[in-house]
Design a protein around this nucleic acid. Structure first.
Lengths: 135, 135
DNA sequence: GCAGAATTTAGAATTATTCTAATTACAGTT
DNA sequence: AACTGTAATTAGAATAATTCTAAATTCTGC
């Protein structure tokens, strides 16, 4: 996994299309949708297709270079922040903010104990009103 | 909110259609999709339409009688369990299990402090391997 | 019984995502 | 430097989930 840069066993790793998608996600501080990424990527590489954006995102996600975030409504969003982190979602304006909670390792262990699952990851989203919306 | 049973100000509250949807969700221990609810509800009320299932679910959700759960993939699922609780999702078979974590109130406060959001709710999902899939 | 409001219905429309089949681009040979 | 097999890309169709629309229906309150 993650032999980005080397061309591994047969696969072409970081193709121009995948590079374009990665560049778009990496250069944005926002959490972009696939549609937004497609729009931006075609400015870099006009021939790129929608399917390739999805394929590239999937590839980059597996390589650990981008992160997918989604909550019930609408489309998935993609994020350059690949380390473990938590999200806060504003119920008024929809803004999505990253933050870090130190207690997540213990939390994951507690959740695994209660649910009897072998833990792999944990996701935590706070829904509330963001500082801006409180005026 | 929640003037179920009384017909409040103009609205018709618990119509037969809404009752059928509520019944379907209440009688299942599973987390059903809208499609599954539609199938089951039309056995009770053959004339019910897809749109009404969605409208009813929205209504019942606002009234606090059912709960919506969703994670990236596929369709939202609806749950009779309306109290706050957490979820564990099996990454192998897709099974979704409810569980309860006592530390969530403190967790919500900690997340609010870190993110500077006014907290409304918090959702926590453990992804891992369920007991059955570990064979 | 009638007016007005809310609800339901059926199907069209929209949105997000995946699939398909044909084409193109490599990488590793010779 | 042509050849072969694999992987990736493209365009557009297909699918899935959900929302919207317009007309018909059902209530509630007078």
């Amino acid at each position: 996994m993650a032999d980005i840069g080397e061309q591994g066993e047969g696969g072409r790793a970081l193709t121009p299309q995948r590079q374009a998608v990665l560049q778009v996600v990496s250069e944005s501080a926002e959490h972009l949708t696939a549609a937004e990424i497609f729009e931006a990527a075609r400015r870099v590489l006009p021939s790129i297709s929608y399917a390739t954006v999805y394929n590239s995102l999937k590839y980059l996600k597996e390589a650990g270079l981008v992160n997918e975030v989604s909550f019930g409504n609408g489309a998935s969003r993609y994020d350059r922040e690949t380390g473990r982190h938590d999200h806060a979602l504003c119920s008024r304006c929809g803004r999505l903010v990253d933050f870090e909670l130190e207690e997540t390792p213990q939390l994951m262990r507690a959740a695994a104990r209660r649910s009897r699952f072998k833990p792999e990851s944990i996701s935590l989203t706070l829904v509330g009103i963001c500082p801006d919306c409180r005026t």
